[in-house]
Structures are given as C-alpha cells and as structure tokens.
C-alpha cells in the first residue's frame, strides 16, 4: 500500500474540474437568485428575494402583491408529468425486462441492444420524430383522414399528452436497464419452486418476479424522474405553450424573459428538490437493502 498513488491525488483533476465548473456555478446560481434583475439580462445588487417571490406572486400596478398560480401550476405539471413518466416507463418496461432476463443468455445481449439502441440516437432527432407523427399534417392525422375516420385533424400535439408520450419514449430504456439488472440475477428455479408450491403463473409473477424487480424499478425511477423533471426539448417541441414544464420556464427567464434572478431562483428550487428527492430515495433504498 505504501508505494501507491493516493486516492485523493488520483481524483484531484476530476475534483478540480467538477468543483470549479459544476459546484461553483451552482453557487453562482444560488447567488444570482438573490439579486435584482438588470433590464438587459444579467443581475445586479441590491440583494432581493424578488426572484423567489415571483414564483408565487405577481405585482399589481400599485406594486401590491397578489397570488398568481401560473408558475406554481407549471411546477406541479412538471412534477406530475415526470412522476407519470417514471410510473408508465416502469409499467411498460417491467414485462420487457422480464422477457429479456428470461431468455437464454446468448439472446439477452442482443435483445438489450435492440431495446437500448434508440437511446443512442440524438434526443433532438428522437423528439422530432414525434413531431412528424403527431402534428396536424403528421402521419397519424393523415392516416386517420385518409381512412375517412376524421375530417378535421385531431389536436394531437401541443398538450400534456404529447409531452408525456415524448418523455416516455425518451426515458423507457433507462427504466428497462435497471429492472433487467435486478431480474437477471433471478434464479429460474425460484419460479419452479413457486410452481411446485402450487402457485399459478400469475401468482408466481406477482409474488416472486415483481418483488425482486422493485429495487430495479426504484433505481430506474431515480434515473428517469430527476432528468424528466427539468427536460427541455420534449415540452418545447411537443408540448408548446400549453404544456410548459419548468425547464422551459427557466430557459425563457434567461433568454427572452431577461429575468435572471427569477430563472436562478427556479433553478435553485429544482436542484434542491431533486437532490432532496435523491437523498431520500437513496436512504430508503439503503434501509430496505439491509434487512
């Protein structure tokens, strides 16, 4: 042990880069959330909590505050959509993961590759594909009208449903992988044992496979919920103005809105929320892992 480079020395370049260009910027974000907006973007002194106040309130002409739920609703929509994305991905992904895990070993790698391949495709391209499908002149509406089922294009885009479809499409592989990792270790003899003890196929799945898949689903939810919460492209391209999520709100505060403190306040709020969620989830996972 005496002659080896120390862990701190080996990790110091990573520590420096992530410290200076990730941790410090997060600190700057926190600091900016407590400043006053400059008229042309950026922020200046004096210190102010205006950025946070604006999340819940707007100012009347006479400068009095009144409660405005607009941004709160966007926050809630983000949480609900990210949560639904996790749940739907888990529900869709569990049978897929189980199917792959129960194939012969030589097939598993190929099947996993097939399921995860779309994840390699650029996320802009992946999201754009759904624009081609869902828009008024998109393939689905053209097909429906061509078949004479509808005369007017159905409003498939620019709503929460479109955003949800896009999010699930983007995050499904992230859910399949960890569930597969959990089920891969499942010994088929456990199911034989369940059948031997008079379980039906359905009950064997519910009592043996499902409980063993739960840790995988929890890991998957960690990988889906947090990134989905702040996802930008999908709500931007598919949701439009009617299905804004917090990522769009932050982006517009820093670009067209020119209200950096407000955007920084939202960022700080989201980051704090996500980190608290992750810490709690990791805690719970650890507690349940140690019986």
């Amino acid at each position: 042990m005496t002659q080896r480079a120390s862990p701190l020395l080996l990790t110091s370049p990573a520590l420096a880069v992530i410290g200076v260009f990730m941790l410090v910027p997060l600190g700057y974000g926190l600091a900016y959330s407590l400043l006053t907006a400059s008229p042309y973007g950026g922020a200046e002194l004096p210190l102010s909590t205006e950025g946070y106040v604006q999340i819940l309130f707007q100012r009347d002409f006479d400068d009095s505050l009144y409660f405005s739920p607009t941004y709160l609703l966007i926050l809630l929509r983000s949480i609900v959509l990210a949560g639904l994305t996790s749940v739907i991905s888990a529900a869709l992904g569990l049978p897929v993961a189980w199917f792959i895990a129960s194939r012969p070993a030589r097939w598993q790698g190929a099947l996993l590759f097939v399921v995860t391949l779309p994840f390699w495709v650029n996320s802009l391209v992946r999201t754009y594909c759904w624009v081609l499908l869902l828009r008024d002149q998109g393939l689905i509406n053209m097909a429906l009208q061509g078949a004479g089922l509808t005369h007017e294009p159905l409003p498939l885009m620019y709503n929460d449903g479109a955003t949800l479809v896009g999010l699930v499409y983007n995050f499904l592989p992230f859910m399949v992988l960890p569930i597969y990792a959990a089920l891969e270790r499942l010994d088929p003899r456990l199911i034989e044992a369940a059948h031997d003890l008079y379980a039906t196929r359905r009950r064997a799945f519910l009592r043996i496979v499902l409980p063993l898949a739960v840790p995988g689903m929890r890991a998957g939810a960690l990988m889906v919920f947090a990134p989905a919460l702040g996802y930008f492209l999908v709500p931007d391209l598919l949701g439009g103005g009617r299905s804004l999520m917090i990522g769009n709100l932050i982006q517009s505060a820093f670009t067209s809105g020119r209200n950096w403190p407000f955007g920084a306040a939202l960022s700080t709020l989201v980051t704090a929320g996500v980190l608290v969620f992750l810490v709690i989830a990791a805690r719970r996972g650890r507690v349940e892992a140690t019986p």
């Binding site: 910027p25 702040g230 996802y231 992750l278």
Partner: peptide, 28 residues
C-alpha cells in the same frame, strides 16, 4: 466514506437537471 462522498460529487452532472447545469454555467 471518501469513495461515497467523491462518487456522489462526480455524479452531480448526472443528477442536476440539464437545464440547471446550462443556466448556472451560463451565469458563471
């Protein structure tokens, strides 16, 4: 202990929502 602490720090770019990384880097 050190492994867990440094490991979480290095995972930060994965955990923090992309949009937050973007705007805080912009601000910085």
């Amino acid at each position: 202990r050190l492994g867990v602490a440094l490991g979480s720090l290095f995972a930060l770019p994965l955990l923090v929502p992309e949009i937050v990384t973007a705007v805080t880097t912009l601000v910085f």
